[in-house]
Nucleic acid binder design. Structure first.
Length: 104
DNA sequence: CTGGTGACTTATC
DNA sequence: AGATAAGCCACCA
């Protein structure tokens, strides 16, 4: 367990319902602006153990990044359930839903 | 230990 | 604007 991991977990846990964050933002807030991959790995790895809202994390385009259809569908449903309108391509309107902790 | 990969991002061409 | 390269670091073979 590294400090980076703990930060990432804390950041993801702080994402309010109905809002999303990008991997890049999380990585930057955690201390490594280009460590988006680690965020992904941590998320994938810890979401199950820490009950993290991984469905509130999307890529830089504001789209669902998952490759697995089942998980993709699960994220889609979770977002819709929180009031986030997801496009048919899994694209989310970042201008509306992107949560910036600094601008909170 | 070495090497390759990944639910990604940003900068350059 | 689409394609390429480099960066990041944990995990698995």
């Amino acid at each position: 367990m590294t400090p980076f991991t703990e930060k990432v977990i804390g950041i993801i846990r702080s994402i309010p319902a109905g809002r999303v964050m990008t991997y890049g933002q999380i990585a930057k807030l955690a201390g490594s602006p280009r460590a988006a991959r680690q965020v992904v790995r941590i998320l994938h790895s810890m979401s199950r153990a820490y009950k993290l809202p991984w469905h509130r994390v999307v890529n830089a385009k504001g789209a669902i990044a998952i490759q697995d259809d089942e998980s993709y569908n699960e994220q889609w449903m979770s977002l819709e359930a929180e009031g986030v309108l997801v496009g048919l391509h899994g694209v989310i309107d970042l201008k509306k839903y992107l949560w910036e902790p600094d601008g909170e």
